[in-house]
Structures are given as C-alpha cells and as structure tokens.
Computed example of a mutant assay.
Amino acid sequence: MRILICDDDALIVEQLQKYIRNFFEKIGVKCPELVCFSDGESLLADKGEKDILFLDVEMPGMNGIYVGNELKKRNDNIIIFIVTSYSEYLDEAMRFHVFRYLSKPLDKQRFFRNMKDAVDLYNTMTIKIPIETKQGVHTLPASSVIAVEAQGRKVVIHTTQRDFESIRNMQYWLELLPKNCFFQTHRSFIINFEHVTDFDRTLVHMADEQFHAYLTKRKYSAFKEAYLLYLDSTR
C-alpha cells in the first residue's frame, strides 16, 4: 500500500502524517509508504502506485477537483479523501466518486473511523483468492467474483472473466470470502455487493442484469442493511 498526501498547508500535512501513523500503530500494522506533495502538478507527475490519497481542493496551480478527476481516469480504484474547509466543493467532488469528504480542522476519531473503512476497502479490492478446479488453480482478485452458486452437487464460481467449477463446497467459500463485501442470500448463492445492480424481496440482479441470485424472504432485511452499509463504506 502507498498513501499520498497533497496539500499546500504544511500543518495539515504534518497532522495527516501523524494521524495516519497513529492509526496503523493502533491496529498493530507497519505504516505503509507515505508520500507528500504540495501541488497537483507534482502529484500527477508521480509515477508510483496511488492507493489512498488525501487531497486538498484549493492549491496553487491545478485545483484538487481537476487533479482528482485525472487520477480517477487513470485508476478507478484509487481511494480519494477530499480534505478541505470549503463545503461548496462537495458536489463537484462527488461526481468523480471520492471516498470521503473530511473537513478542516480534522477530527481524530472521525479520521480513524474513515481510515478503517478505506483500509478495509483497499484490502477487499486487492485480496486475491485461489479457485481450485479439477484442471488446476486459478488466482483472481476477490472483486472479480460476481457470485458463488451451488448447482446440485456442483459449486460454480461466476467471475467477470468466466465461470469456474470449484472443487470446494459452499461453506468453504462462505468462510473464505471477505464478509464486508459478500453475503449469502440463499443456501445456493453467495453474492458480491460490488456487482449488485438492484434487488427486490426474492431476487438480486447482478452484473448489469446478466446474472440473478435468489434472495430468501427471511434474509431480505439483513441483506438490505448489509448492502446499504457496503454502499456507505464505498462513497
């Protein structure tokens, strides 16, 4: 993981660095690489990986809205926090799907809560899972799994690439897949929230209506709550 800060306010940069280090110390994990920039031009010129970014809006030269848009075009998975005193930029920032909007001065507890959500999302997007079939093992990002379906004695893993017939049972997949993104809607289906298009009380429509999973009535409320929490964590 590589975390970037882009702000022309040296005090805010120092505070963000401190809070980020405190957060990783609190969860008992070594702090990732931290890189700081004071303007958008130098950030856009950077050739390194960009996983999580704390971005100011009002800076000399390019403003943060333009920079954020450009970075999202290059890598849609970048997790961007907008950090600013000016709430009028919120609508513009939301158009390129920023992860969170943090107001200055920063509140430490709120920062920690949002940072946890960002790290959880990053881990979900980057975690890779092995799919064991009779022909061999295929390793794919968890995010590419649309759903796991039990078809009689077979267990089929539907992915964005193709379907795989797994040699593992449903319980194995229920324990393996990240619980913040996957949900068992029915004894025959485990779905990935990321690929949900819409749902009603009996069906979950996925992958732009290309796939459908059953949703039992007794799980409807729990599914709805979990899905809304997932959406909230990715905004």
Score class of each variant (00 low, 15 high):
residue 208 D to S: 14
residue 187 R to C: 11
residue 163 D to W: 09
residue 192 N to H: 10
residue 190 I to W: 02
residue 174 L to F: 10
residue 197 T to W: 12
residue 198 D to K: 15
residue 210 Q to L: 12
residue 204 V to S: 03
residue 199 F to S: 00
residue 198 D to H: 14
residue 209 E to F: 15
residue 202 T to V: 12
residue 204 V to L: 05
residue 177 L to Y: 05
residue 207 A to D: 13
residue 195 H to P: 00
residue 209 E to V: 11
residue 195 H to A: 00
residue 169 N to P: 04
residue 207 A to I: 02
residue 189 F to I: 05
residue 191 I to W: 00
residue 208 D to P: 05
residue 176 L to S: 06
residue 191 I to C: 05
residue 186 H to W: 09
residue 186 H to Y: 08
residue 169 N to W: 02
residue 172 Y to S: 02
residue 179 K to P: 07
residue 205 H to E: 11
residue 184 Q to A: 11
residue 195 H to K: 04
residue 178 P to L: 09
residue 192 N to V: 03
residue 208 D to E: 15
residue 179 K to H: 12
residue 168 R to T: 06
residue 164 F to P: 03
residue 199 F to T: 01
residue 180 N to V: 11
residue 208 D to H: 13
residue 190 I to L: 10
residue 206 M to I: 08
residue 206 M to C: 04
residue 176 L to I: 08
residue 165 E to G: 01
residue 198 D to Y: 14
residue 189 F to Y: 09
residue 201 R to P: 07
residue 195 H to D: 00
residue 181 C to V: 11
residue 174 L to K: 10
residue 190 I to S: 01
residue 175 E to G: 08
residue 163 D to S: 15
residue 174 L to I: 08
residue 191 I to G: 01
residue 170 M to Q: 04
residue 196 V to Q: 05
residue 198 D to C: 14
residue 182 F to H: 02
residue 165 E to D: 06
residue 169 N to M: 06
residue 210 Q to E: 11
residue 185 T to E: 07
residue 163 D to G: 10
residue 181 C to H: 09
residue 186 H to R: 10
residue 204 V to H: 01
residue 171 Q to W: 06
residue 206 M to H: 02
residue 177 L to W: 04
residue 194 E to V: 04
residue 204 V to Q: 04
residue 191 I to L: 13
residue 201 R to Q: 14
residue 183 F to R: 01
residue 177 L to A: 06
residue 162 R to G: 05
residue 205 H to G: 06
residue 175 E to V: 02
residue 196 V to R: 02
residue 200 D to P: 13
residue 177 L to S: 00
residue 171 Q to M: 12
residue 163 D to H: 12
residue 208 D to V: 13
residue 187 R to G: 08
residue 176 L to T: 08
residue 178 P to M: 06
residue 184 Q to T: 06
residue 197 T to L: 15
residue 188 S to N: 12
residue 209 E to N: 15
residue 171 Q to K: 15
residue 195 H to G: 00
residue 167 I to N: 06
residue 189 F to H: 10
residue 174 L to N: 07
residue 208 D to K: 15
residue 169 N to H: 07
residue 194 E to H: 12
residue 202 T to Y: 11
residue 180 N to T: 11
residue 204 V to W: 09
residue 182 F to W: 07
residue 209 E to D: 15
